[in-house]
Amino acid sequence: MEAGHRHVNTVKAFVDDKPERGFWHVETSSLHDFPIQMRMFDINLNSDYSISIDAINVSPAVKEGTPAYKGFKYAVAAQQLQKWI
């Protein structure tokens, strides 16, 4: 597995005979599509055995003129260009 390197969104369950040893592997393309954005997941097993997944996206404020601001501008431009391709 190359999480964060394939630039695709995938979710795979790794099941084990002991449920507490199983886990989910979640890959998102966030870093490729928007390199300054961060993403966090909160995955819960509910009392009725359904699963809730909350995704939290964070776009930090960046100061104009900094390298982070320049990267942010490039990310926005790349995202806008993809709409035309």
Results as ranks from 00 to 15, higher is better:
Val76Gly: 00
Gly71Pro: 06
Glu64Tyr: 03
Lys12Pro: 00
Val26Asp: 02
Val62Asp: 00
Val11Ala: 15
Ala13Asp: 05
Ser52Gly: 09
Ser52Asp: 13
Ala55Glu: 15
Arg21Trp: 12
Ala75Phe: 01
Arg39Pro: 01
Tyr69His: 15
Asn44Ile: 09
Asp33Arg: 11
Pro67Gly: 02
Tyr49Gly: 02
Gln82Asp: 07
Ile43His: 07
Gln37His: 01
Ile85Gly: 04
Phe14Val: 15
Lys12Cys: 02
Asn44Lys: 15
Val8Cys: 08
Leu31Phe: 14
Asp42His: 10
Gln80Ala: 14
Asp48Ala: 07
Trp24Lys: 06
Ile56Gln: 05
Arg6Thr: 09
Met38Pro: 00
Pro35Lys: 06
Glu20Val: 11
Ser29Tyr: 08
Val58Pro: 00
Ala55Gly: 10
Ala78Lys: 12
Leu81Ile: 07
Gly65Ala: 12
Val11Ile: 13
Val62Trp: 00
Met40His: 08
Tyr49Thr: 13
Thr10Trp: 09
Thr66Tyr: 11
Val11Arg: 13
Thr10His: 11
Lys83Gly: 03
Pro19Ala: 05
Ile51Asn: 06
Leu45Asp: 04
Ser52Ala: 14
Ala13Leu: 14
Asn44Met: 10
Lys73Tyr: 00
Asp16Pro: 02
Ser52Thr: 14
Tyr49Trp: 05
Val76Cys: 10
Ala77Tyr: 13
Tyr49Glu: 15
Phe72Met: 06
Ile51Leu: 14
Gln37Ala: 11
Ala61Gln: 00
Arg21Val: 01
Phe34Ile: 06
Ala68Ile: 01
Pro19Gly: 05
Asp48His: 11
His7Ile: 03
Val11His: 08
Arg6Ile: 10
Pro67Asp: 02
Asn57His: 11
Pro67Val: 03
Phe72Glu: 09
Ala77Met: 11
Leu45Thr: 12
Arg39Lys: 04
Ile43Met: 14
